[in-house]
Design a protein around this nucleic acid. Structure first.
Length: 837
RNA sequence: GCGGGCGUGGCGGAAUGGUAGACGCCGGGGACUUAAAAUCCCCUGAGCCUUGCUCGUGCGGGUUCGAGUCCCGCCGCCCGCACCA
């Protein structure tokens, strides 16, 4: 039989995907005696099409999962769907399709797309969060947290669209207006459900220390998000007879306070507004615009002088009390002392309203009169102009103020967290119904577990604004579980972050009658390797950690941290193209002509723009289906792994994927060629082969796929050049095994062609002969004053004195030295000699 | 605004404080071919007084025998900011 000229993915991809599926080899067996490995990628939202970014994410996980299987692990590598969320409701409003059927159609499409890429997934564990079989268990867990006192209701602000009569997500508010209606958005208070994540603030912070397989940057971001701070809480006596509590992390600067500011929704502000209509107008103005921190903090600092005075606890001076738009009710006490000299926001505010800006921290005690440098000085120094604090450094002064406040009884040291409780209420249809019942007599009553799941109604109407659950004619009607009287169901649904806070548990164990089996979970958890985008560094990952700890606290699971190791991958980007009129063009609409780009349709010149994240609006997208049909799954997978380090952005390019296609064919020629069969040995190639096995294994385990790819290119090149020998046959066989996790279809085809037994997907990773890993000759760099002047070859392990002699014996070195006096010689064994002359 | 990250040839990138540019893409030259495609071989950071020398890792300083790597100060871009997922 002669080998076909070319590897044909159109035939091989589907063939091997069917073989894997029929043999069910990627099913994870909870009863297996092998060591386990749980490899998980963040599950996708079923938007309709797989995005190239998903392909990159899942290819990385797939390589690791397939590699681990070859190393003898029982691998759990599941996939599912983060299936609740707003896009389904938007589709319902725009196209009149039911969110459920829209979502389920999308899932079917995307599943078929994933299968065409040849991922080694255990589809028997597939789940979709929008099915009652999933969210019913979520409701049970939520009630468990409620019973443990971790769920409560309180009033909280939302973005309210007065025209559409609906709550808007932050992304639906554009420049302070509703995206659909264009109406000015208002802030409105609603009673909403909250999870007490703040109960776990200390634990979540301390737990970060144990996550040594997480990127430092993610741990740091979470640490800052949790935001533990120590400071002083104290109260001012107000001129109206009330007291006003403020919190400060810099109580040392108390003598620099020149005003006091309260949040617009602070009781003091509200009190002033009752009698002062200017104040009420100001507060109304603050209610316009978005609710996001970014908007609040970039907005111009605005204040309203209430006319109230606050008595400084040390000086007795009356400080003006302002209502200010940059003070947050949620943090601390909702009121702050303004110290403009040493806080930039306060500085901007004081400058605007003509308030004094005294210096109370200076480089030294002699600098008390030094003017500020045109901006706040938040840094370190010693206290000045501060009475009994003068001369102290900042930490000492903080301590001294707290001690004095506590001794005199007007304040106390306090730990404050930036972390706020998690608001999980959404006034939407397409989410998990919050399992509670409102009874006029009994109040808010949990749905009894026997009545779960509370299932969403199918017959909903999206033609009118507002929440379809609230408008539904019958769904809300029920009876109170306590008194049996007529009662109403809760119409809020859960934030979709709740769905994704425990899906990794359900993947590991999915009994019908409960969320999971505790023993089975203990076998699989924690996830060995979690892979996803950096955009989830804080919210999703913190919520999932919280949920896991909460379930642990109420005794349902044994693990405390769900993800032992985390990897955050970069985005897939693409060059952008614009026509003469500024409109965006897709990569298919342009073609290269020499150094220029032109429109395919009319030959008009095209401007090429920056390489940015692929997005529909800029049309710089490529569709995975199209490129797989064109190049085959293996070339696309190879591209996803090549060149860019996985944590960085990967620029898609047509030239790049064509290069990958060529390499697939190049490997095929190497793999499909007849064996040489001779008994000759090629020691250099054997050494190279074993070094490559070790390096590729280390690179895959470190998720440095781009380096593994470079190693494979090198070994492929060396093997092609090698003369026929048994060593060369062995190198080819090794190459097939090394590429098997990355290009599984090509590897299966080659494996079968060589007459190897079984599937390469179930083969064992090649053994390394440690004796072949060490080189006996090394290259020594010879520097003179740190500049390279010569390279020499020397036996490995040569003593320092001999290396030095060898370097000095070189003609080139002597010429460069030109008789200069040698002052010092630095020798790094097996690497370098540096002569300081 | 606050928090986090990144910055190396034409491009993607490699480099335990020790030979900067591995490997790939693009480009150039050649072989094969009637020709093309495919394939194979060679060259490819810049400059210069070209046996070799100088410069060069966003910018400006510093530490060191030696800095892409460590420290300080900037600039640019990207991500997150609690109702997008």
């Amino acid at each position: 039989m002669t080998a076909p000229e070319r590897f044909d993915p159109a035939i091989s991809d589907g063939k091997w995907q069917r073989v894997w599926d029929e043999a069910q080899i990627f099913r994870a067996d909870s009863a297996s005696a092998k060591p386990k490995s749980y490899v998980l990628e963040m599950f996708p939202y079923p938007s309709g099409r797989i995005h190239i970014g998903h392909v990159r994410n899942y290819t990385m996980g797939d390589v690791l999962a397939r590699y681990k299987r070859m190393r003898g692990f029982e691998v759990l590598h599941p996939m599912g769907w983060d299936a609740f969320g707003m896009p389904a409701e938007n589709a319902a409003m725009e196209k009149g399709v039911h969110p459920g059927s829209w979502t389920r159609d999308n899932i079917a499409n995307m599943k078929a797309q994933l299968q065409r890429i040849g991922f080694a997934l255990d589809w028997s564990r597939e789940l979709a969060t929008c099915e009652p079989e999933y969210y019913g268990h979520e409701q049970a867990l939520f009630l468990g947290l409620y019973a443990a006192g971790l769920v409560y209701r309180k009033e909280s602000e939302v973005n309210w669209d007065p025209v559409d009569q609906t709550v808007l997500a932050n992304e639906q508010v554009i420049d302070g207006r509703g995206w659909r209606s264009g109406a000015l958005v208002e802030k409105r208070k609603l009673a909403q459900w909250f999870l007490k994540i703040t109960d776990f603030a200390e634990e979540l912070l301390d737990g970060l220390a144990s996550l040594d397989q997480w990127p430092d940057k993610v741990r740091l971001m979470q640490e800052n998000w949790i935001g533990k701070s120590q400071g002083l809480e104290f109260s001012f006596a107000l001129s109206n007879g009330e007291r006003l509590a403020v919190y400060s992390t810099r109580p040392d600067t108390i003598f620099g306070a020149s005003f006091v500011a309260v949040a617009p929704d602070h009781p003091v502000a509200q009190g002033v507004a009752m009698t002062n209509c200017e104040a009420a107008k100001f507060i109304d103005r603050c209610k316009q615009g978005g609710t996001t921190a970014a908007e609040l903090e970039t907005a111009e600092k605005l204040g309203f002088d209430t006319g109230i005075g606050a008595v400084h606890p040390f000086t007795g001076v009356q400080l003006p009390v302002f209502i200010a738009n940059f003070v947050l009710m949620e943090y601390g006490t909702g009121a702050v002392m303004g110290v403009p000299g040493h806080d930039q926001r306060d500085y901007d505010f004081a400058s605007k309203y003509g308030l004094p800006i005294p210096r109370v921290v200076a480089p030294s005690v002699d600098d008390a009169g030094l003017p500020l440098a045109g901006e706040a000085e938040p840094g370190d120094g010693v206290l000045v102009n501060s009475d009994f604090l003068d001369g102290m450094d900042v930490p000492l002064a903080i301590r001294a103020v707290i001690d004095r406040a506590e001794a005199e009884g007007w304040g106390h040291g306090k730990t404050v967290w930036r972390l706020r409780d998690w608001g999980v209420s959404r006034q939407r249809y397409w989410g998990t119904p919050i399992p509670f019942i409102h009874c006029d007599d009994c109040g808010i009553v949990p749905v009894p577990k026997g009545q779960l799941p509370v299932v969403l109604p199918e017959d909903v109407d999206f033609s009118a604004p507002g929440n379809p659950l609230e408008r539904h004619p019958t769904w809300q009607r029920t009876t109170c579980p306590q008194c049996g009287a007529a009662a109403r169901r809760e119409t809020d649904t859960l934030d979709t972050f709740v769905d994704s806070s425990w899906y990794f548990l359900r993947f590991a164990s999915q009994p019908a009658d409960k969320p999971f089996d505790r023993e089975e979970l203990a076998k699989w958890l924690p996830v060995e390797q979690y892979i996803g985008g950096i955009e989830h560094a804080i919210l999703h990952l913190l919520y999932a950690r919280f949920w896991t700890r909460a379930l642990n606290r109420i005794g349902l699971i044994d693990v405390a941290e769900p993800f032992a190791s985390l990897f955050t991958q970069g985005m897939v980007t693409h060059e952008t193209y614009q026509a003469g009129d500024g409109s965006w063009l897709s990569p298919d609409e342009v073609r290269r002509e020499g150094a220029d780009w032109v429109e395919v349709a009319n030959g008009a010149p095209v401007t090429t723009g920056r390489v940015v994240k692929m997005s529909k609006s800029k049309k710089n997208v490529v569709d995975p289906d199209t490129i797989i049909a064109r190049h085959g799954a293996d070339a696309v997978r190879w591209f996803m792994l090549s060149d860019s380090p996985p944590e960085r952005d990967l620029p898609w390019s047509e030239a790049g994927i064509e290069g990958c296609s060529r390499f697939v064919q190049r490997l095929w020629r190497l793999f499909a060629a007849p064996l040489s069969g001779s008994g000759d040995q090629d020691a250099a190639l054997e050494r190279k082969t074993h070094q490559t096995i070790a390096a590729v294994a280390a690179d895959i385990e470190a998720l440095s796929f781009n380096k593994a790819v470079a190693r494979i290119y090198e070994l492929a090149g060396s093997t092609e050049k090698a003369a026929p020998s048994a060593s060369r046959d062995a190198a080819v066989r090794t190459l097939i095994l090394l590429v098997a996790p990355m290009m599984p279809h090509l590897a299966e085809e080659a494996w079968a062609r060589r007459g190897e037994r079984g599937l390469v997907a179930e083969a064992v990773w090649p053994e390394v002969d440690p004796a072949l890993l060490v080189e006996d000759q090394v290259t020594i760099a010879v520097q003179i004053k740190g500049k390279l002047r010569e390279t020499l070859t020397a036996p490995k392990g040569l003593p320092q004195a001999e290396l030095e002699a060898l370097a000095l014996a070189s003609d080139k070195v002597q010429r460069s030295l030109d008789g200069a006096e040698i002052r010092k010689v630095i020798v790094i064994p097996d690497r370098l000699v540096n002569i300081v002359a």
